[in-house]
Simulated scan of single mutants.
Amino acid sequence: MTPTELAEKLHARDVVLLAGRLLLSLIFVHEGLELATHFEGAQKAMAALGVGTPLLVATIALQLGAGLSVALGILARLGAIGLGLFCLMTASLFHTNFASQNELLHFEKDLAIAGGMFILALSGAGRLAVDRVLIEMMKGRAGSKSETEAAPSESHLSAAGTSLPV
């Protein structure tokens, strides 16, 4: 497919979904990298909040894994659900001192990000996603096999439009 053909097939929806995925995932990938590269400092700061090392490691894995999942469009729906739930838990566990304007702001931002993640989980990653490319490649291979050899293709969670009942 030439770049011109690709541009003709792209729709504004897919470009907006890509931009939204990248913007939503940026904070998680960045924070995951910061925690990982400054592990000892993060470990001390988290211990002061009552968070042990295993939960810190799980947080880093979730932020990097699900953040990249959303950004790249690989199992983006699952990554978005994981990060949405993470934001709800973070808001309710760490940002409930509403007497502090800063804490209230962090609480509200966590809720807003969770909302964006849940919307992404419903809408899917769109056409500009690694999942979509992999499915198209698999369809191409299946199409080149004979009828008896071709395996049925299954749509992926984040590959198409909303497949969830709404």
Rank of each mutant, 00 (worst) to 15 (best):
Q43M: 12
A42G: 07
L55A: 14
G52W: 01
E40N: 04
A45Q: 09
A48D: 11
E40G: 02
Q43L: 06
G65D: 11
A48L: 11
G52M: 08
V57A: 08
A66T: 09
A48Y: 01
K44Y: 01
P54S: 07
H38Y: 09
V57G: 05
T37A: 07
T59S: 15
Q43T: 06
A47M: 01
E40Y: 00
L49S: 10
T53H: 01
A61M: 11
T37R: 07
A58L: 15
A47G: 00
E40Q: 04
G50A: 08
G52T: 12
K44W: 02
E40C: 00
G65I: 12
E40D: 10
G67L: 14
L64C: 12
I60P: 10
Q63C: 15
G50S: 09
L49Y: 08
L64V: 12
P54Y: 02
A58H: 07
A47K: 01
L64D: 13
A66Y: 11
Q63F: 14
V57H: 04
F39W: 00
A58Y: 11
L62W: 09
A42R: 00
T53E: 15
M46A: 13
G52H: 03
I60Q: 08
L62F: 10
E40P: 01
T53F: 01
P54E: 02
G65V: 12
M46T: 00
G52I: 05
A48C: 04
A48Q: 10
I60E: 07
V57N: 06
A45I: 04
V57Q: 05
A45D: 09
V51N: 08
L64F: 12
T53G: 06
H38K: 10
G50K: 05
Q63D: 15
G65L: 06
L49H: 07
L56R: 03
L56F: 07
A42D: 04
A45K: 08
L56Y: 02
G41H: 01
A42K: 00
L62I: 14
A45R: 07
G50W: 02
F39K: 06
Q43D: 12
A48E: 14
T37F: 13
G65N: 11
A66D: 06
A42S: 15
